[in-house]
Simulated scan of single mutants.
Amino acid sequence: MIGHTDEYEKMFRLEGQLWWYRSLHERVATTIRKHFGERRDIQILDAGCGTGGLLDFLRKRGYTHLKGIDGSTDAVAFCHERGLPVVFINLNELAGFEPDVRYDVIVCNDVFCYFSDDDLPNLVKALAHRLKPDGLLISNNNAFNIFRGEHDLAVGSGRRFVQSDFDQLMSDAGLRIRKATYWSFILSPLILAIRQWQSWQLRFGWIKPENVQSDVYLPSTWLNETLYTIVSTEAKILPRTPFGSSLFIVSKPDSAD
């Protein structure tokens, strides 16, 4: 999403309110808490942290050793506005950045979709190298090409994934997938209908590529809270689902118990 200043500005304004971000941040926090209990002194890196919404979310919940990196000057500037410890770095150059520092948790949400087949394995290996032996790599990813629509063009997303895309990728990096689930399963028919309609409009020229808009906007309060409740309830009662617009993956070093 580098170069999309308007999208970063929307993200900065809405991350703390929009149902999707809130649900994702809670999913990450729940994963961390299940593994590390009530510890708040663990080392956490958000790689590709965007405007810092997740780091701010974790900071408010008492986590004290947080760091972010991002390859967008816009994103880093917004993070600094929040008072977050974020460093500008091109993630393709991660292998040379603080090579001896290790983290308990590395989060890389909605980042892999911007990397080519040649560059992505190197990024995953660099992230794996930064993990402590019992650490976690948490990633959220755009899922299923059928959900591709106006949003993907607006944020510059180059690809969508299914779980099998990560099996060999994680293994080659010395990681093992411990949990993987698609989400927004309950809302997937609605999301799919919207995205397919967007695709039809783009295909027939009813929407021009230069005028596309992302899905990052705040709906009415009642709708935003309803969508948040649906997705939060899904996460509690359906820990794994076979379909959805996002794919949430938790991996650990293969040598870990």
Rank of each mutant, 00 (worst) to 15 (best):
I177A: 01
L137Q: 02
R178G: 14
R203C: 09
F204Q: 12
S139T: 12
Y217H: 10
I146D: 14
L192W: 10
L153I: 14
P121W: 07
I194T: 14
N122P: 03
R178C: 12
N141Y: 01
A143C: 07
Q196E: 10
A154Y: 05
L131V: 00
G158W: 11
S214P: 07
Q198T: 04
I191N: 12
W206M: 13
N211R: 05
N90A: 10
Q163W: 13
R130F: 02
V107P: 03
L137D: 00
V107T: 08
G158D: 14
C113D: 06
E98F: 06
D165S: 12
I207A: 13
F161C: 13
N145A: 15
C108G: 04
V111H: 01
N140L: 01
A128K: 01
G135C: 01
M170E: 00
F115Y: 08
F115H: 09
V124H: 01
F204K: 14
C108Q: 03
I186A: 03
Y217C: 11
L202I: 10
T181D: 09
N109W: 11
V216T: 03
D118M: 10
Y182N: 06
I89A: 05
L123R: 01
A128F: 07
F204E: 13
G156V: 03
S214R: 00
W222D: 08
V105A: 00
V124N: 02
K179T: 10
D104F: 12
F147I: 09
Y217I: 02
D134Q: 13
R195K: 15
K208H: 15
F88E: 07
R130T: 03
D117S: 12
L153F: 06
Y182P: 00
D100E: 12
I207C: 09
F161Y: 15
S184H: 14
N90G: 10
P219W: 10
W222N: 09
W222M: 09
I194R: 10
L94P: 03
L91Y: 02
W183F: 13
F161E: 14
L202A: 05
S157Y: 14
F161V: 06
D118F: 06
W183S: 00
F147P: 03
F185M: 08
S184M: 08
E210W: 03
W197C: 07
C108D: 04
V111C: 07
V124M: 07
F115P: 06
I207E: 12
C113Y: 11
L120V: 04
N211S: 13
L120A: 08
D110H: 13
